[in-house]
């Protein structure tokens, strides 16, 4: 039965990692603006293509 103690401590540790992730998310401002990221994800790909283009243009 002693293994249960170990398991519980381990599960608590995993949960703590998630709590830490939540802290990080709040502190990095992810909860400040719920709207813009939803818009931003729509054009993520295009940013990289246009950047590549401008880079290659400059490289030529």
């Amino acid at each position: 039965m002693g293994v249960i103690v170990l398991l519980i401590l381990f599960s608590l540790l995993v949960a703590l990692i998630f709590l830490g992730a939540f802290f990080w998310a709040v502190k990095s401002g992810q909860f400040d603006d719920p709207q813009t990221p939803a818009i931003r994800m729509l054009f993520d790909n295009e940013i990289s293509t246009s950047k590549n283009k401008s880079k290659t243009l400059r490289g030529e």
Partner: peptide, 25 residues
């Protein structure tokens, strides 16, 4: 959405700009 896109890509117009982050609300 176009506004958000443009304002977050200002570095293409002015090299000195590192990044722009829009808060739409």
């Amino acid at each position: 959405t176009s506004c958000v896109w443009l304002l977050e890509n200002l570095q293409n117009i002015d090299e000195g700009i590192i990044r722009g982050t829009v808060n739409f609300l």
